[in-house]
C-alpha cells in the first residue's frame, strides 16, 4: 500500500478581486501518510481553510486552482466531476466547523447522517437510518434512537460537532479533513471534541486549527502556514519542543502558559505577496541580509522550515 494517503504538489489557489487575482494558497507541498493525524495551524487569513477545501475542489467557481492533489494514483484536480463525487464523502470526507450553519436546520439530524449512507453505500432509507442511529450512539449522542429525530437547534454545540463527525465517517471515509473543530467552544467541550477525534482510530486526519492546545494533544505532525505558504512541517514533539521558524516560535511564546508574549505587527496584506523577500521578514526579530530573497523550504532530518537561518 502507498504510505502517502493524500499529497498536494505546488498547490496554488487564487480568488478574483477588484485589483486582480489574490493568492490565498501559494505553492503548497504537503503530504499526509496513511493513518497519520496532522494539524495545519496558522492565523486567520493565512489560507489554511482554503487549502483544505481546495484538496477536494470544494471552492466556489471563481477560484483559480493550479498544481496537483494526488490521491490513490489520481490527480483530484484533473479528475472528472463524477469520479470526484465518488471520492468526496466516500473516501475523503470534509468535516465543517460545528458552530456555523453546517447542518440543515429543517432536516432531522438522523436524516442528515443517513444521507451519505444512502448515497455512497446504496442503503435503503430505513436501514440507513438504523445505521445512522448506531453511529450517533457510538459517537456519544445520548438516547440516539430518540434524538436522531430531533432538529439541529435542539443539539448543543459539542453534540453538533459529533453529528458532523458522524456524517464524515458515515460512508466509511478513510481520510478526514476537519475545519477548526474547536473554534469558539469552551474548555469542557474542547476536551470532549479532543476525545472524539482521538477515538477515530485508523483514520487519516488532517485538521485545520489555530488551537495549539488541541494540536499538542491530537496531532502527530504539525504544519504551520503563514501568508499563504507552508513555513514549517515537523513532528509534534519537535514542533512543541524545538520549533525552528521564528513565526512558529512566536506562536508558541504567545500561549498563556508560555508567557503570553505578543508578536508585534500584522500578517502582510494579500496584495503584497508578489514582492520579493521572506513574507515574515517585517515582523521577524532575526531578519538579516538574505531575507531580501524568498527562502525555499529547507529540510533538516525530516523537519522542514522556510527560513534562511537554516540554510546550510
Amino acid at each position: 500500500m502507498d504510505p502517502v494517503a493524500l499529497q498536494a504538489k505546488n498547490l496554488t489557489v487564487e480568488f478574483p478581486a477588484p485589483e486582480g487575482f489574490i493568492r490565498a494558497v501559494d505553492g503548497v507541498d504537503l503530504a499526509i501518510k496513511n493513518g497519520e493525524r496532522m494539524a495545519l495551524v496558522g492565523e486567520t487569513g493565512s489560507g489554511k481553510s482554503v487549502l483544505l477545501l481546495a484538496l477536494l475542489r470544494l471552492l466556489p467557481a471563481g477560484a483559480r486552482i493550479s498544481g496537483e492533489v494526488w490521491y490513490k494514483g489520481k490527480d483530484l484536480l484533473r479528475s472528472p466531476n463524477g469520479e470526484l463525487r465518488r471520492v468526496r464523502g466516500r473516501e475523503v470526507a470534509y468535516i465543517p466547523q460545528g458552530t456555523g450553519g453546517a447542518l440543515n436546520p429543517v432536516l432531522t439530524v438522523g436524516g442528515q447522517v443517513a444521507e451519505p449512507i444512502t448515497v455512497h453505500l446504496g442503503f435503503k432509507k430505513k436501514p440507513a437510518l438504523a445505521r445512522a442511529i448506531s453511529l450517533l450512539d457510538r459517537l456519544g449522542i445520548p438516547e440516539a434512537s430518540r434524538r436522531a429525530f430531533e432538529y439541529p437547534h435542539q443539539y448543543s454545540g459539542g453534540m453538533k460537532q459529533r453529528v458532523l463527525v458522524a456524517m464524515g465517517v458515515a460512508a466509511e471515509a478513510q481520510v478526514l479533513l476537519a475545519d477548526e473543530p474547536t473554534k469558539g467552544v469552551d474548555w469542557q467541550r474542547r476536551e470532549e471534541i479532543l476525545n472524539l477525534f482521538r477515538s477515530l482510530k485508523e483514520k487519516t486526519i488532517l485538521t485545520v486549527t489555530h488551537d495549539l492546545w488541541f494540536t499538542e494533544r491530537f496531532a502527530q505532525k504539525v504544519a504551520v502556514m503563514y501568508a499563504a505558504q507552508i513555513v514549517e512541517v515537523a513532528l509534534q514533539e519537535e514542533f512543541f519542543g524545538r520549533p525552528l521558524h521564528p513565526y512558529a516560535r512566536a506562536l508558541l511564546a504567545a500561549l498563556p502558559a508560555r508567557g503570553l508574549i505578543p508578536l508585534p505587527g500584522y500578517a502582510p496584506a494579500h496584495a503584497s505577496y508578489g514582492e520579493p523577500g521572506c513574507r515574515f521578514s517585517k515582523r521577524c526579530p532575526h531578519v538579516f541580509g538574505r531575507c531580501q530573497e524568498e527562502p525555499p523550504l529547507f529540510e533538516q532530518d525530516g523537519h522542514r522550515v522556510r527560513c534562511w537561518l537554516y540554510a546550510c
Partner: peptide, 30 residues
C-alpha cells in the same frame, strides 16, 4: 475567537491601558 498571537496582542494592549489609566477589569473567560 482569536488566534494565539492576536490574543497575546489584545491582552498586552489591555495591560498597557491599565498601567496608564488605572482601569479595573473583570475578565470573563473559560
Amino acid at each position: 475567537m482569536l488566534d494565539a498571537i492576536t490574543q497575546a496582542q489584545i491582552i498586552g494592549l489591555l495591560q498597557e491601558i491599565q498601567k496608564e489609566k488605572g482601569v479595573a477589569y473583570l475578565f470573563i473567560s473559560h
